[in-house]
Amino acid sequence: MGQRRYRIPSTSALVAFESVARLGGIGRAADELNTSQSAVSRHIKHIEDEFGTRLTEKSGRGIVITRAGEAYLRVVTTALESLNAAGSALRAADEDVTIACTHEVSHLLLMPHFARLRESLGRGARIRILTCEYETVPLMVNAGADLTFEYVEDVPETGCIEILPEEIVPVASPSFLAMHAGILAQQPGAWRGVPRLALTKANLGWATWEDWFAAIGTDAPATEVETHDNYVYLLEAAAAGAGLALGWRGFVDRYLQSEALVAVSGRWITRPPKLVARLTRRGERNRNAVRFLPLLSRLLSNRRT
């Protein structure tokens, strides 16, 4: 396969020509490019020698572009703008941070801090969030994720940082508490008949009501249980007075701070799993993703109540 040879002057020469044409003078172009006038003149001469035609002419104290120069300038300007746009896209792709996580992590943990997290990355960098079911988070690595959120019992020493321990407490709306004040004042084992809210399926790493009652040393009393597919929807139902919900520290903070939900018991139960943010192999090569880990941990730890 033969080699293709492009008869194209250097990028520096093209930039110098565009600057001279736009500013109307070699001196002004030299100032803009932070170089000498002789260097700019050499660039223009190099292009003219390459194609055997004049592109510029002196006119009084300035420079004017010849007809041939005007035609070439249009092409050069378009090419330089395309190169600049392509470079910006490459830089942005390199600086972006793509996160794969569940809807709960996205809505309840990341979004309250989204503006500060984006600002920390600097201009041009974006945060992309890929939401999915917990079981499919590993598949998002192939979609270009730099960071994933997952539950582990032992936090790896490198490329991973603890975001939140799993700490849970029953919560309910003030109106629900007022309605069931008498029975909720008793020991949890006696909360028979008090409606509870639960997730429809096992969400890996998340405790169930049975786990919470077992942790405090009693069986879960019989009652009506309303199920929800999504923890965000479950919290909204609890805030509307539909029943007791398990509140995870970090996830339920905004509801507690606004008093849309209130802790029924002052005792938070701590369980072994921890929510961590982990760098993917792609993320390990992304300086912004590496910087993102400790920042994320610091912001989220500050909102614990």
Results as ranks from 00 to 15, higher is better:
Gln3Tyr: 13
Arg7Glu: 14
Ile8Met: 14
Ser10Trp: 08
Thr11Tyr: 10
Leu14Ile: 11
Leu14Gly: 04
Ser19Glu: 03
Val20Pro: 02
Arg22Thr: 04
Leu23Ile: 09
Ile26Phe: 00
Ile26His: 01
Ala29Asn: 01
Ala29Pro: 02
Glu32Cys: 00
Ala39Asn: 03
Val40Gly: 01
Arg42Gly: 00
Asp49Pro: 02
Gly52Asn: 07
Glu57Ile: 15
Ile63Leu: 07
Ile63Gln: 02
Val64Tyr: 05
Val64Leu: 12
Glu70Trp: 09
Glu70Cys: 05
Ala71Lys: 12
Val75Tyr: 07
Val76Gln: 10
Val76Cys: 10
Thr78Ile: 10
Ala79Glu: 10
Ser82Asn: 07
Ala92Asn: 08
Glu95Asp: 04
Val97Phe: 05
Ile99Thr: 00
Cys101Ala: 12
Thr102Asn: 07
His107Glu: 07
Leu109Phe: 05
His113Asn: 10
Ala115Pro: 00
Leu121Glu: 03
Leu121Gln: 01
Gly122Glu: 03
Cys132Tyr: 04
Glu135Pro: 03
Thr136Pro: 01
Met140Phe: 08
Thr148Asn: 05
Val155Ala: 10
Glu157Leu: 15
Glu157Val: 15
Cys160His: 11
Cys160Gly: 10
Ile161Met: 13
Glu166Asn: 07
Val171Ile: 15
Ala185Phe: 10
Gln187Leu: 11
Pro188Glu: 11
Thr208Gln: 12
Trp209Met: 15
Asp211Val: 06
Thr218Pro: 08
Thr218Arg: 12
Glu226Asn: 02
Tyr231Thr: 13
Val232Gly: 03
Tyr233Thr: 14
Leu234Tyr: 05
Ala238Ser: 13
Ala238Glu: 08
Ala242Asn: 01
Arg254Trp: 02
Leu256Ile: 15
Ser258Asp: 06
Ser258Pro: 03
Ala260Asp: 10
Leu261Tyr: 12
Leu261Trp: 11
Leu261Ile: 11
Leu261His: 11
Val262Ala: 12
Ser265Asn: 08
Arg271Cys: 00
Pro273Ile: 08
Lys274Pro: 00
Arg278Ile: 10
Leu279Trp: 09
Thr280Lys: 04
Arg285Val: 06
Leu293Lys: 09
Leu293Tyr: 04
Leu296Gln: 04
Leu296Ile: 07
